[in-house]
Design a protein around this nucleic acid. Sequence first.
DNA 1: CTCTAATCGAGACGGTACGTCGCGTCTTACG
DNA 2: CGTAAGACGCGACGTACCGTCTCGATTAGAG
Lengths: 187, 187, 187, 187
Amino acid sequence: MASINPRRTTDARFVRSREALRTALLRLLESRPLDQITIREIAASAGVGYATFFRHHAGKDALLEDVAAEQIETLVARTLPIFDAAETRTSCVALCSYVASNRTLWSALLTGGAAAAMREAFIRVSRRVADDRRDTVAWLPVDLGVIHSSSAIIEILVWWLRQSEPRAADEVAMLIDRLVISPLGGL
Amino acid sequence: MASINPRRTTDARFVRSREALRTALLRLLESRPLDQITIREIAASAGVGYATFFRHHAGKDALLEDVAAEQIETLVARTLPIFDAAETRTSCVALCSYVASNRTLWSALLTGGAAAAMREAFIRVSRRVADDRRDTVAWLPVDLGVIHSSSAIIEILVWWLRQSEPRAADEVAMLIDRLVISPLGGL
Amino acid sequence: MASINPRRTTDARFVRSREALRTALLRLLESRPLDQITIREIAASAGVGYATFFRHHAGKDALLEDVAAEQIETLVARTLPIFDAAETRTSCVALCSYVASNRTLWSALLTGGAAAAMREAFIRVSRRVADDRRDTVAWLPVDLGVIHSSSAIIEILVWWLRQSEPRAADEVAMLIDRLVISPLGGL
Amino acid sequence: MASINPRRTTDARFVRSREALRTALLRLLESRPLDQITIREIAASAGVGYATFFRHHAGKDALLEDVAAEQIETLVARTLPIFDAAETRTSCVALCSYVASNRTLWSALLTGGAAAAMREAFIRVSRRVADDRRDTVAWLPVDLGVIHSSSAIIEILVWWLRQSEPRAADEVAMLIDRLVISPLGGL
DNA sequence: CTCTAATCGAGACGGTACGTCGCGTCTTACG
DNA sequence: CGTAAGACGCGACGTACCGTCTCGATTAGAG
């Protein structure tokens, strides 16, 4: 949508609204789950007309994925080395540290009722990465590998971010390593 | 709700409606995801008045859980021995066989957009079981263990049931064993 | 609409809402023209849910015509004898007297921006009457006769009802007689 | 608006846009009624920027009246002699002939949902003329005379232009004469 | 085998959010 | 630096579904 018309990427107003909507959603996600947030609220909170929302996104979910996409892209960039490294544990630590350092953001994304959408987005990105790499283990179907590891990681992160007194990042990294990565059997 | 008035469990009309609603939901779930099914449709498909739906269930989700509950109870009864047995693999086979033998039902429940609700129900039941048993591994927080294993199993089942040409039950059992059960490290 | 389902005509709630909407529209028409009245206002003023409006009428205009229909039916019943009577003047007086005695109502209907719709409704009713009677004057096409006389009468009434200090009913009756009825040349 | 800046009447671009808008509206009116035509369509059809529309006219209606004004001015110039002439019938023929010779234009203006606006414009012009002339008949209020005759003429023309196989101009002229002009009683 | 009361179907209702549309204003990029 | 493009705020629209409610019309099961 944004890429069709070159103007859209340049026009100051367009960029401004777009960014306002992104941050408004994140702001609201900190207070309550996605499905209790109305598009009208997002628009109002962004200081943007209601109709304008639809000039940028097809719906609530579309905005969420738009917001999520770039974050996930970054997260995956941190997750990638996990599978390469002999030292998977170190990589898991890196992953968790990144999440910890953006705790508020990731809490909103993962514990705000958007986890399912995030999971989808994460799987999508992971699948793309997996297609590029083509390292396989005989007993494990590739797509299941992607789905399982993505889901499990997301879910452990959700569990982590929901804790009132969160554990240390490297402790969680250990859990991910032992529960998810190691069982994949050294991809 | 159903238990307040003893008559409700006896009155032929009440029982008939209840059952009609259950089967109607399952029938509809085979055609499209839960959130595209309206309560009005369920009622109509059950040959039951719209208001009657609410005389039995608080909402769509309540009906789903009502339907799901007994199935999950059975499934967990099959899953339980997994953790006891030295031969976890055998138990996984038993689990998958059961699902395979009720494929239509479980497909509706798991691939019909109700997976999230099923996951919750499954976790709820599992947690209850886990509380009874109290076998712990030092490095793994109990609640995470429950959440992770429940979610991962559900998710592998979803993956399985979505395949156009599904794999053999024992093959999937192997996957569950290697990806989920074994890593728990012999509870 | 009201006549399809017999229940609708009986159900107390339905009748209540229907009547509330009618009177609400008339009430609002006294304060400002039709196109400055929103459906939401009508519903609110009727103490009726917004969606309920559409359960009764397809839109603002439909409600107006519904309201207008019966009034026009009555008015036409008064207008009819005009064409029969040798004393057309007397009949015109009757017509104007009736309008005068319901001045508030007719002001709302005719000076509230609804005149066009009223004209249509009036023509429709008149055409039906004309079809029944089949008295024709050679030089005047029937449909033009209906359109012209209906429109002209409506328009004179509008002019009358808009005056700050309205003329006497029989004076207006005279105007209608001389400008509209007589020229028809003794139908 | 157009008269404030002297440049506006001279600037070639301004004149070009103005004319483009006029003809665009007329072109569109031939295909569908005024209220189904959006300003955006008019602008697009005129090959003119959307905002540019508002540099010329306050809105759709304003453009219409702008377009209509000159036509009506001409029409009234033809209608005027009607009231002077002893031979009103001849004048009516002149009027109708003029309309017939610009049938497409007048069809667009009168049958395209713009009749009400045209009526207003026609009345406005007629009133100006009537004020100048000051010929009165005792029993007929001047403003009603103007409104009635204007409306009735417009309305007969609409009826005429809507016919699939239109009658001859002098036949319609006769109808106008007998229904509208004669009853005014030789102003 | 009746009578009485619970249950039923039907669906009207008040709400709330949706996504669409057109308006008229105002900003922006571009020639 | 002026103009065309079009993003924007606004606000009404009509739709969909929710869950509550009011109706009579059955019909089950107790007496």
